[in-house]
Design a protein around this nucleic acid. Sequence first.
RNA 1: GGACCUAUAAGCUAGUGGCAAACUGACUCGUUUACACCGAGUAUUCCCAGGUUCGAUCCCUGGUAGGUCCACCA
Length: 772
Amino acid sequence: MANKYDFKKVEARIKGFWEKEKVYKFDGDSKAFAVDNPPPTVSGKMHIGHAFQYSQQDFIVRFKRMNGSVFYAFGTDDNGLPTERLIEKLKKVKSKEMPRADFIKLCLKTLKEITPKFIQDWKDIGISADYDIYYSTIDENSRKISQRSFIELFKKDRIYKKEFPTIWCPECQTAIAQAELEDKEDAGLFSTIKFSVEGKDLLIATTRPELLGACVGVFVHPKDKRYKDLIGKKAKVPLFDYEVPVIADDSADIEKGTGVLMICSYGDKFDVEAINRHKLIPRLILEKDGKLNLEGYCGLKIKEARKKILNDLRGAGLIKEQKEIVHVVNVHDKCGTEIEFLMTEQWFIKILDLKKKLIEQGRKIKWRPEFMLKRYENWVNGLEWDWSISRDRHFGIPMPVWECGECRKIILPKESELPIDPLQIKKTCSCGGKGIPEKKVLDTWATSSVTPQICSSLVNGKIKIPFSVRNNAHDIIRTWDFYTIVKSYLHENKIPWKNMMVSGFVTLGKEKMSKSKGNVVEPQKVIEEYGADAMRFWAASSKLGEDLAYQEKDLIAGKKFVTKLYNASRFVFMNLEGYKFKKPKKLEKIDELFLEKLNSLIKSVTESFENYEYSKAKNETERFFWHDFCDNYLEIVKKRIYQNKKGKESVQYVLHKSLLVILKLIAPIMPFITEEIYQEHFKEKEKSIHLSKWPVAEKAKSGDEFDLFVEVLSKVRQEKTNNKKAMNWECVITLPEKEIKMLGAIVEDLKDVMNAEIKSGKFNVEFVQFLK
RNA sequence: GGACCUAUAAGCUAGUGGCAAACUGACUCGUUUACACCGAGUAUUCCCAGGUUCGAUCCCUGGUAGGUCCACCA
């Protein structure tokens, strides 16, 4: 064994060993602990949040593997908008400006280039998935399953197509779902504009004057005395000179602005509802690319149009006043662009009628931490739209449908034809009409929500839904978790997984890490400097669901722990010469007591892992190893070993046994160093420590005597320190008769470790002057 | 406006209805037959106010601060 632990060399070698020996290969056990391992969205590289979250998942998986079998596939999410944006950035192209087929080709080619390196990041931090059971959410099998899901749900009458003002991103030029909205604070100009009723001014305040030409009505509150007389009359829209009705509606807020509200098609969700409620006829002025189609403003983007119209209004003296305000707007989470509402035809999965059922399903899952269930319930309760699943984009799974050009009937492919691209296949309706292919693709969530089904298919259904566990950070409860629960409910009438483990975020001080702030920490650099074990050790230091502030110091602590493990192992094996690897007939008392301590550690660590409390497990093992094992036990037995005293075999047995137990207990957290030591010294039946059996607590006794021993020990150490004496300075310890009796035979060990003589009496430590 | 989470040492985090804790850092000392490091020791602490209790950092109520999600966003 080398003198120094070179984590870079060792980690590389161990990684190679795991791969070559297929240590994490699924053994085919249908009762295996099944993980619905979230497929990360392919991006350049893994970020620290990933490293944090996947490590936490891996702790549990490794623990489970040592207690049985696990099913742990690996996938990448690489279709839909996020991937398109990535490819556009990498290749400096615009998807919408290319033929669809060419863009898809470019995507697939680029993915092939970047995916292996991306996955390598997961291997580098020791994620113990079976990478041979691999899927990509754009691969043939995933396309098939996703399209089959669509067809099944269509047949169950869960999917419908509707022309509707939908949430639209003018930047990405696609419809998006409610879950993809984010809030953003933005400065805006609140302008009070002069409408007129029967020649008199009617003042209306708005932040969106560019929609003036889309105004279809004006609301006032029925109890608002100022405007009572106007109700039922017509108001003239400035600049455009057409008339709209003045309508009494409770939704108008008397306090806000001038108390008069203009209704446009469509300014926001509220407008959509209002127009439907009053059966107003929309005036559509916005195109899909976010440009206006309105006389005088044609081809202008929203913000340009806003500027121009304000100028025009000002020129015509139609602005009463203006003020700067900061308001919150909805933006698309992928690109930060303000969303619009556009009349388009989209596909939806009907879910609003299932709220109650979906909450019931959520409650059947054991959430860790428990309060995360509340977030799920909140989200479900707040749903206002059905799930919009169609996207007007290029790179995604094609929607597998045609519409009959004659009778408008929807034509579906046969299951045997899947996966299918309707643009490539001609279909004829039963009426003889020609099938018009649907050009839209499925939203990426429509596929990510069937990862349990995809994983299951990779092993021919051997692993069934519900899976054992899913892990992800709390930001995607409303998307991934929610949609997956929806699909499993609709398809299997089951929950997708029995346990849900939710990870927190990595912060920097009190700040959130973000690229724009430039305060990101790259896991690749962390590993480079401290090693994967140290990184994982850090990731294990906060509870599930809790955020963790990144501190470089913590990595140092992890690295030191690795070194300590390595050195302690060196020490143990240096002193195992002549050891027969057999339990001696009789163990010395102190050794037995130490084993009892070890057993209670096993018991408690096992419980912690079973409850997904990996941080507790880590803390306990760390404390025991460093203090009980190294600082106390090793010091206690040193003399017996060095001087070849009676009971050496007993020590050797306990050293060997307890070191292996400690290694196993910390193996889920630190897989590399533990494997290295196991390979070097402990390798027996199982080819890897990670396939070895989890230790079982043999007996759980009180261990009181050991505690008393340590207590006395620390009192003596304190005296030595106070008197500035070295720990091996010879001394005479006086102990009460009662304590000597309780300690019994292990008084001898106290003598050894403190280089002391023992006398009976009141506690005292005397130092022998002449000898060292 | 609603829901939820958090508040513990200088930093980061555990934890408990009954002497408040690990790690890092600070200070003092000691070590060289595992550990250019390790060991021993010292100091400092439960956001505020009420309540329940023999006893509250922990449970309850209210407040304050920070965070997350949602709603509003004319």
